[in-house]
Write a protein that binds this DNA or RNA. Structure first.
Lengths: 149, 149
DNA sequence: CTACTTGCAAATTGTTTGCATGGAC
DNA sequence: GTCCATGCAAACAATTTGCAAGTAG
């Protein structure tokens, strides 16, 4: 309920309203540890509210994003799909296995270091870094030899 | 001419053909230091070959990409636009200024270090890393105060 | 009640594809 | 001549928008 009040207040202070759809979509992202794209959020949300429209999902994701409640991430090189996750998680990056499509989270302070160095050097100010890695995980490296070029 | 032969040979060994369109598109990417998206490549190429079609540009970019002659990069957080650059440049990443849209190239070995560490830790094999930074450059930080939160 | 939100459908944007014609080798 | 490549238009996928009806505060 503190949760609910928090969202309601955040919305209110932006002149926005608390609706069942918004609550639903945020809770789905909040409770999963999977990496969901808009389509998948829609699929899951629709099970609980069959009238829900995909346009509402996109609109809600944009609202939540602007309010810094969720982050939009790209995991694969071609960035074909956008994924969303709540911002509660600590700093981490993603490695996508091209073999099994598994996503492994990578934790490292080095990205922040690069930002700090660059900022010190140029006086620039960072707002965001997008980092995604691609390759083959240990399992897939073992089972396939083809890409050991 | 060595240039031309090189491309022709690469194409030939892949069972592909050397065409004016392909030569043109590669030369545009080769000779510019700007960061071009498909639309801009098309715009510039069309000036030199008015019959050129955008579909050919996309097809050619994909061919060149598969032949590792160009790389596809994303610079902005929302990855709204894809840019292409020839692979002749050394390892570098991009910082996009949200104020003036300037793109600054960032050179650092740290990204490779992260990859090496993660590889050593998990046994994974990297094929690609996509890294893009966003923020405000020194000039824009000076001129605007709004985002010093 | 008033203004924000939704659902629905249509519009947009970026990219790809099918097919007949044209062109490299 | 044989196949690959091109131009054109149509198809696509992901996301956004216009608008009338619904609903939170």
């Amino acid at each position: 309920m503190a949760e609910k009040t928090f969202l309601a207040n955040k919305l209110k202070s932006a002149g926005l309203r608390m609706t069942p759809q918004r609550k639903l979509i945020l809770s789905i992202l909040d409770e999963t540890s999977d990496h969901l794209d808009a389509e998948e959020v829609y699929r899951r949300a629709k099970k609980l509210n069959s009238k829900l429209n995909i346009a509402t999902v996109y609109r809600t994701l944009n609202v939540l994003k602007e309010m810094d409640l969720i982050e939009q991430r790209y995991f694969a090189r071609d960035h074909g799909v956008e994924y969303y996750e709540t911002v509660t998680k600590g700093e981490h990056y993603h490695f996508t296995c091209l073999g099994c499509r598994k996503i492994i989270e990578v934790e490292t302070p080095k990205i922040k270091q690069v930002q700090a160095e660059f900022a010190a050097l140029t006086g620039a100010q960072f707002t965001h870094a997008c980092v995604c890695f691609e390759g083959y995980c240990a399992d897939c490296v073992d089972s396939e030899e083809s890409f050991t070029l």
